[in-house]
């Protein structure tokens, strides 16, 4: 379970998070939506300790995320970065198996490679990309390699930052199914950021909308369409008219 308690974060004069309160129950899939630049990525990075909140606390299973053994804490997480963040000095399979090649989860090289290729297959990539370098792949392929890396060590908690951005509709469908599967079969807790409403409906148990630095609305995905919240309604319909300004 992940709990945001009144989390604040500013960059200089820019107030990005202004008191985020949100609970993600264990084994559920939470999707975060919200306009571009509202701080969705920042919120995920706060949980991982990559960005330190100015105020407020984030609890993971009731314990403060910033306290205690960092290695043990991070070993439970997988993260797909918005830009992929693949290591360009390593080949695709070495990226996917990064965690399996070193540290506490280390295994023999051949086995790590096998797992990497299996994960690549799950994100719709053939084994022949395994020995390429990230720079030799298309943007969408890089994204999927990033996804494979995030799930390679079968973490309990997985963050996906825009997993389907830049993918064709069929591949988006494959990735949506995969994320759903990971939550249902592996019992993982997932937080996904997406702008794609099809993905939201395919992936989410619950939805939270971030707007103006706070969670504007949160609830089960089924209640999303009849929320009565003008912000959420405008966001779902993609209308330029409404309380959310088009120029931000």
């Amino acid at each position: 379970m992940i709990e945001f308690q009144d989390v604040h974060k500013s960059f200089g004069p820019k107030r990005v998070l202004r008191g985020v309160n949100l609970t993600v129950p264990k084994g559920e899939s939470m999707v975060i939506i919200g306009g571009s630049g509202t701080g969705k990525s920042v919120a995920l990075k706060c949980v991982l300790g990559l960005i330190h909140p100015d105020a407020g606390t984030i609890l993971v299973d009731g314990k403060d995320a910033t306290q205690g053994d960092r290695d043990a804490f991070l070993a439970r997480f997988g993260m797909l970065f918005q830009g992929g963040a693949l290591f360009d000095s390593l080949t695709v399979w070495q990226n996917v198996a990064f965690r399996l090649l070193r540290g506490s989860l280390k295994r023999p090289k051949a086995e790590a490679r096998e797992i990497a290729i299996e994960k690549l297959r799950r994100v719709g990539l053939t084994p022949d990309v395994a020995d390429l370098f990230p720079s030799e792949l298309s943007g969408g392929m890089q994204k999927r390699v990033g996804l494979a890396r995030a799930i390679a060590a079968e973490p309990e908690i997985i963050f996906f930052d825009e997993p389907t951005t830049g993918l064709d509709p069929i591949m988006s469908g494959v990735i949506n199914d995969l994320i759903r599967e990971i939550v249902v079969e592996m019992g993982a807790t997932a937080m996904t950021i997406t702008h794609d409403m099809t993905s939201v409906r395919a992936i989410a148990d619950k939805v939270a909308m971030l707007h103006d630095g706070v969670i504007q609305w949160t609830g089960p995905v089924g209640e999303m369409d009849n929320s009565g919240d003008p912000y959420l309604t405008q966001f779902i319909s993609g209308s330029a008219e409404g309380p959310i300004e088009a120029v931000r």
């Binding site: 990559l50 991070l74 070993a75 970065f81 963040a85 693949l86």
Partner: peptide
């Protein structure tokens, strides 16, 4: 470049 493309963040999340 690694920092700018979030590779350093990725390292950290991969317990390295």
């Amino acid at each position: 470049t690694m920092k700018v493309t979030e590779q350093i963040d990725a390292l950290t999340t991969l317990s390295t």
